[in-house]
Nucleic acid binder design. Structure first.
Lengths: 153, 153
DNA sequence: TAATTTCCCATGGTATCCCATAGTTAACCA
DNA sequence: TGGTTAACTATGGGATACCATGGGAAATTA
């Protein structure tokens, strides 16, 4: 599970350290790297491990073969994603087009969101985070945890 | 289940012993540590074990994929939380930003709340506890025990 | 050959691990 | 039943390993 928010530096070669917690999540899934793609939802990147891509594949296969949405998701996620391998110290190099899409320069903010994560430009993420906080405060009741559904205690 | 209130010291490195009964609750869930995040309801921290996070994940996944509410909760809960692993004696180190959010310095009060717990600055918690007591006294009828609904013991 | 890209080594800071101690509770036994 | 032991909890501090980062050399690619 991807949890917590970390800000790491991007060096002149476009390299950035993937937070160690994130690394251990994805390497446990059998691929020593991350899959990243430009979000179709805004100026940031989305990413995850091998398992996330497999989940998306399953979800897409449940859709109708010629459904427009299916084609769109296929193009954006599978067509747009790149596997970025870790170097020996746990860094990846961000492709230039990705950096441009997300307005990345010196710093990258990694936000863990459970099954996936996002990579933002720090300045852009500030208002986004503030907005989310405000929304959560004003709508706490919208989130209800289920009445214990899991097996053991 | 997290029950009772315990006050433990915070040392110079930001380490604090998690109450032993809390520890046994979460380690039984398969992760030898706790997830903690700054509450969006006030100057204190909230936390729980792996299962609490999974519950939140389930709740969030019931929402629409790109619903704004969903994104907001994902950001606040998963983005804001941090997994804090126990050391060999059952302590965790509290990140500085968390300590600042909750005004923590020398002591931390752990308050068990069933599936969740809170961590407060001792001074701040006094009036809070008194207020809760008063409120409970004045609203006794609000508490009704359900008609046994759970599967396990 | 020029410009990238990939690999490798170096470093400072921090967090984690490990050992040690005191106090408390629980267990035990005569 | 009283006293002793044993186990565990909470705490302190030093050593070590790991993380994030920088830069150079080798390998690619255009």
């Amino acid at each position: 599970m991807f949890v917590s928010t970390t800000t790491n530096g991007i060096d002149a070669k476009g390299r950035v350290s993937v937070p160690a917690d994130f690394r251990s999540v994805v390497t446990a899934q059998g691929f020593a790297g991350i899959y990243v793609w430009p979000s179709f939802n805004g100026a940031f990147l989305e990413g995850g491990g091998l398992r996330l891509l497999e989940d998306y594949q399953d979800a897409i296969e449940d859709m109708d073969p010629y459904d427009d949405a299916r084609t769109a998701f296929e193009r954006v996620i599978f067509g747009g994603a790149k596997p970025l391998m870790f170097d020996s110290t746990g860094r990846v190099v961000l492709p230039k087009p990705f950096m441009e899409h997300a307005g990345l320069e010196k710093q990258a903010v990694f936000i863990g969101l459970g099954k996936r994560f996002e990579i933002w430009n720090s300045a852009d993420y500030q208002p986004e985070a503030a907005g989310a906080l405000k929304f959560a405060r004003e709508n706490k009741t919208a989130l209800r945890t289920p009445r214990r559904r899991r097996e053991e205690g």
